[in-house]
């Protein structure tokens, strides 16, 4: 059979050791963010200083890998200069691309740094080829990251109708997937991913142990209560359990991880150009484990005898959020 070009494996880094772990374990590209609200993982102590980004880019480039910088929140009124500075810093540092969602920032990057590649972030919420092509026409985007709401045939349809490279998610925690549009947490905290780069700011989160059980509160609002040894999830409103009509359950969404190992050959066949791993908030141990597993699976995926190895599944199960893994929207036979 003809050799299929493998999609790029794009892995997350919240710190320099995580970047090194990704590069050392087989990532083709690493994505990261600055220590501020210009990216959607604006957590205390996470992310990179300018100096760390330079060190990271050197480390990756010396090994033939690329670094993408996520500046994927929406510039806030009166503070647009912060977001412009982030784009300038990414260009100065020699990033291979910036991952943007805000149209104003795409325009700024196109005008001021025309040679810096631009990727349309998943936060840009482009779910059809018209939207992707519009961003291509106006801002010359090289790649678009598709939101996790499309079936495989829908992803294929987008790819067939655009000159833009298409990146999709391969593994990681899922959310309610109103990417670029979610303001749910604003209800509890006044902050949301698109405005502050974080949906459950740690300053609003309280874990309250009561013997062996534990309650989670977000700005005082009880969002979950875990029995002894019951698996916990991230403290987000969308993954809380609420009382609705006398029943208490995951009223919005149960904590779940996306795992696309089973459909990797399909993703290759339809021409996906990059596969992304979620989790910049996780530690270097997570990045190493997931990168290693996805690398092995991707390298095997072009073989017609491909099947998901139990060892890969185990490795990913261990680091997953929630009780279950899913193919998400990729497989939706009931359409």
């Amino acid at each position: 059979m003809p050799a299929t070009a493998l999609p790029e494996l794009v892995c997350p880094a919240g710190s320099l050791p995580a970047l090194k772990a990704a590069v050392d374990h087989g990532a083709d590209a690493v994505y990261l963010g600055f220590k501020n609200a210009t990216n959607a993982r604006n957590f205390a102590g996470l992310n990179f200083t300018d100096a760390q980004i330079k060190t990271g880019i050197d480390y990756a480039k010396q090994r033939g890998k690329s670094v993408l910088i996520a500046i994927n929140t929406y510039a806030q009124a009166g503070r647009v200069a912060e977001w412009h500075r982030a784009i300038d810093a990414a260009a100065d540092a020699g990033a291979d691309a910036v991952i943007l969602a805000d149209l104003g920032l795409l325009d700024y990057a196109t005008r001021v740094h025309p040679t810096l590649h631009r990727h349309l972030s998943v936060q840009g919420s482009a779910t059809n080829f018209e939207a992707v092509n519009l961003a291509h026409d106006y801002f010359g985007i090289r790649r678009a990251v598709l939101p996790r709401v499309l079936t495989l045939p829908q992803v294929e349809y987008v790819i067939k109708n655009t000159p833009v490279e298409i990146e999709v998610f391969g593994f990681g925690s899922l959310c309610v997937m109103a990417e670029g549009r979610c303001i749910l947490s604003s209800y509890a905290t006044g902050e949301s991913p698109n405005t502050h780069g974080v949906c459950s700011p740690a300053s609003h989160v309280q874990w309250i142990p009561q013997g062996d059980t534990m309650s989670t509160r977000l700005n005082g609002i009880l969002i979950d209560h875990f029995a002894a040894d019951e698996p916990a999830g991230y403290p987000t409103l969308c993954k809380g359990r609420f009382e609705v009509n006398d029943a208490t359950y995951y009223a919005l969404e149960e904590p779940t991880s996306l795992n696309a190992l089973a459909v990797l050959p399909e993703l290759l066949r339809i021409g996906v150009r990059a596969i992304k791993v979620e989790g910049r908030q996780r530690s270097p141990a997570y990045t190493a484990e997931v990168t290693k597993t996805l690398r092995a699976a991707l390298d095997a995926a072009a073989d017609p005898r491909y099947s998901v190895k139990p060892a890969w599944q185990q490795a990913l199960n261990k680091v997953s959020e929630g009780h279950q893994q899913t193919l998400g929207a990729y497989s939706r036979p009931w359409r």
Binding site: A232, Q281, R282, Y286, K318
Partner: peptide, 8 residues
């Protein structure tokens, strides 16, 4: 192990 894993 990743601290989030142990936390979950």
């Amino acid at each position: 192990e990743d601290p989030d894993t142990l936390f979950f």
